[in-house]
């Protein structure tokens, strides 16, 4: 977590800010107590569950005056900003928990299980709201911690039979292949070569041209037939024809003349496109139709 920033990967996000609580006497306006809080707001998503964990961590860093004694905070998840059906949270409200400034810094953690209902593709913008109170004041103060990365939940069938799950969709996942992995060595070498020699560095991490996932169908077949024609396949025999960008991407050969082919052992070609490699990546990152992803070749 970093102050003032949202740090996120495909499954977790963390945002941190500092809050100042002031207790003010009325009508004089005199401040009779202040407290400084470090507030962290986190998510932990699960690619095969509609329920994720959301956690607010409040730490009283320092306090003065009456705020030293009995400042309290409760927390709840606000699902109202969602598109479609909102998320639901258990428990609905947590707290209030007491902060004891006189004995040094107290940390209180509020953990929620948040669920995305139904089967539809839904975007959620779940926020954590804290309510701060003090025995000296009849009113309470509210603050939305905010900054949680948007959450997307779906029940898509074309990523594998794993039911509903959720990701942070603004983080593009990275598909990694190793040249040291004998099972896919030839494919990895070809992709690395293609990312360097083509006009555009298709899929190369953060180079501006992410691939977009294309599920199997007419277009992926057309991609395959355009790149790996019968003539090319015959030329590569006994090896198979490998193409990049993948036929399973919207950057494939049928719609993008900037592609590469190479002869690769058939077993490596099949393994890379199969359930243990690209299929697993698509499933575990919930890479839906037209979702962006990167392709990184490692040693």
């Amino acid at each position: 977590c970093r102050v003032g920033e949202q740090v996120s990967d495909r499954f977790s996000s963390c945002a941190e800010k500092y809050l100042i609580v002031s207790i003010v006497e009325i009508p004089s306006g005199k401040v009779i107590g202040t407290a400084l809080f470090d507030a962290k707001n986190k998510t932990r998503l699960n690619y095969k569950s509609a329920t994720w964990e959301q956690e607010a961590v409040l730490k009283m860093v320092r306090s003065f005056g009456v705020a030293k004694f009995g400042t309290m905070a409760s927390a709840e998840v606000d699902c109202k900003a969602s598109q479609g059906n909102g998320c639901t949270s258990a428990p609905g409200v947590i707290g209030p928990k007491v902060f004891w400034g006189i004995w040094g810094a107290t940390t209180n953690t509020y953990t929620f299980k948040v669920t995305s209902p139904g089967d539809a593709l839904v975007g959620h913008a779940p926020q954590t709201k804290v309510t701060v109170s003090h025995p000296s004041s009849p009113e309470k103060a509210h603050f939305t911690l905010g900054n949680i990365a948007p959450v997307r939940c779906d029940s898509a069938k074309n990523i594998g039979n794993i039911g509903r799950g959720c990701v942070h969709p603004l983080v593009k996942p990275v598909y990694r292949l190793s040249k040291g992995d004998k099972a896919v060595k030839g494919v990895a070498e070809h992709i690395e070569d293609a990312q360097h020699k083509l006009k555009k560095p298709w899929g190369a991490v953060n180079k501006g041209y992410p691939l977009h996932r294309l599920p199997n169908g007419d277009l992926s077949r057309a991609n395959r037939d355009t790149a790996c024609t019968t003539a090319v396949k015959n030329r590569y025999k006994p090896k198979s024809c490998d193409e990049y960008p993948f036929a399973g991407s919207y950057e494939g050969a049928a719609v993008n003349p900037d592609y590469s082919t190479a002869p690769v052992p058939l077993s490596e070609n099949r393994t890379e496109g199969g359930f243990k490699y690209r299929g697993k990546f698509i499933m575990q990152n919930r890479v839906l139709d037209y979702d962006e992803f990167w392709v990184e070749i490692t040693k």
Binding site: I20, S22, E25, I26, L36, V132, H134, S137, E139
Partner: peptide
């Protein structure tokens, strides 16, 4: 009394 809460200014962060 009244209780107020706001985000800390950069200069107020330790």
């Amino acid at each position: 009394t009244r209780i107020e809460i706001r985000e800390a200014l950069p200069s107020e962060i330790p």
